[in-house]
């Protein structure tokens, strides 16, 4: 006999489509494409992008900086370890369904229509103050809506794996690679 609550919540649904609400939000995301007007990104970065649009790059940059955190101790930020560019390279080689869903996720995560819908905020994620961005991420992480928790996991996985697979992040955590003494 399966635990009813667990059974319901782990049941067979596609990535992000965890509820009727999630399906509606993702479907609606098609009507809110990420416009790039007014986005100022250095040409040398734009020239390297294979997966993100310039606007998406900025969303990921802002999100990853909050996701990784900064401790004012000289340790590198997400941007300093090129997390957005590394994520772009990684996602450009991902399975097509993951690519499609990640584009949709970034739209739902950032667009003011959805930040208002979820949290009654009137600003897009990239225009929020840093402390509001943290609260917004916390809301996604602990939301009662399954697809928001899934979305948070997707963003966390991309950010942290792009940061901690990079050797520039290792010194701070005392990791010396695989010849370290035991």
């Amino acid at each position: 006999m399966l635990n009813p609550g667990i059974n319901d919540s782990y049941s067979r649904r596609r990535f992000l489509k965890q509820s009727t609400f999630g399906v509606l939000a993702l479907s609606a995301s098609r009507f809110f494409p990420v416009f790039d007007s007014g986005v100022n990104l250095p040409p040398q970065i734009v020239g390297q992008l294979r997966f993100f649009s310039p606007k998406e790059y900025l969303i990921v940059e802002a999100m990853a900086d909050r996701m990784i955190g900064k401790l004012n101790d000289g340790a590198p930020s997400a941007s300093q370890v090129d997390v957005p560019l590394r994520a772009d390279k990684f996602l450009s080689g991902a399975d097509p369904e993951i690519q499609e869903q990640f584009h949709q996720l970034l739209t739902v995560f950032n667009a003011p229509a959805f930040t208002f819908l979820f949290d009654f905020r009137l600003s897009s994620f990239i225009n929020m103050k840093p402390e509001d961005q943290d609260t917004y991420l916390e809301d996604w992480m602990t939301s009662i809506i399954g697809f928001r928790r899934t979305g948070f996991q997707a963003l966390k996985r991309v950010s942290l794996s792009m940061f901690y697979t990079e050797s520039r992040s290792w010194k701070e955590i005392g990791f010396e690679g695989f010849d370290a003494p035991r």
């Binding site: 996701m67 955190g69 900064k70 340790a75 992480m141 794996s161 901690y164 005392g174 990791f175």
Partner: peptide
């Protein structure tokens, strides 16, 4: 390993990073 630990450690941001500094 660093990435497996980072993905397993709960949370995000400064609090997560402080925990990562306890990695050794």
């Amino acid at each position: 390993t660093p990435t497996l630990a980072a993905l397993a450690i709960p949370g995000f941001g400064g609090e997560h990073r402080k925990l990562m500094q306890k990695y050794p």
